[in-house]
């Protein structure tokens, strides 16, 4: 059943096994091509599997998905494809959030605007408590080292 498939999909996602989750997501979509949860899961799987071009294509051409405000996912695809100015434009539509700032910092770093990246990371490091504090400190250090 779809419920059983979603149970497995959720578990595989928690374990980071997106290559195993994707076929199950596609099975759900065969039963119901308009299932929004499955469509969103498909995008996540594609992004985790480094298929940013396909993810972006799906997000912008699928009738249901293109209606959704998936700013962060769309901007992330553009960032990975090195379309950095477009990625910033996409994020300007998003509600401000630490997630948006984190991607902005990465974009500015890639643009070699290290001052701006460092400035965003300083604020994030001060205000964010999650599993990525060490990685964020490393990114801040990288931005500071490159800006000096």
């Amino acid at each position: 059943t779809v419920e059983q498939l979603f149970t497995q999909i959720r578990k595989l996602g928690q374990d980071g096994l997106h290559h195993k989750a994707l076929p199950l997501v596609i099975e759900v979509l065969k039963k119901n091509p308009k299932d929004l949860d499955a469509l969103k899961c498909k995008i996540v799987c594609l992004l985790k599997l480094d298929k940013c071009k396909e993810a972006y294509h799906t997000m912008t051409t699928d009738k249901e998905l293109s209606k959704l405000p998936m700013w962060h996912e769309r901007a992330y695809c553009l960032y990975r494809q090195n379309k950095l100015e477009e990625a910033i434009t996409e994020l300007n539509n998003a509600e401000p959030s630490p997630k948006v700032d984190e991607l902005l910092a990465q974009i500015y770093y890639k643009l070699e605007n290290y001052e701006e990246a460092a400035s965003i990371y300083k604020t994030l490091v001060k205000n964010t408590m999650d599993s990525y504090t060490n990685e964020r400190e490393t990114n801040l250090a990288a931005a500071l080292a490159s800006s000096s």
């Binding site: 949860d37 969103k40 996540v44 992330y76 990288a142």
Partner: peptide
């Protein structure tokens, strides 16, 4: 080149499937 992590990829996650399972 200094180490730099793609933290944003970690922020991309499945929607809450709690109602679907």
């Amino acid at each position: 080149k200094p180490t730099f992590f793609d933290i944003s990829l970690n922020h991309i996650e499945f929607p809450d499937l709690g109602e679907r399972v």
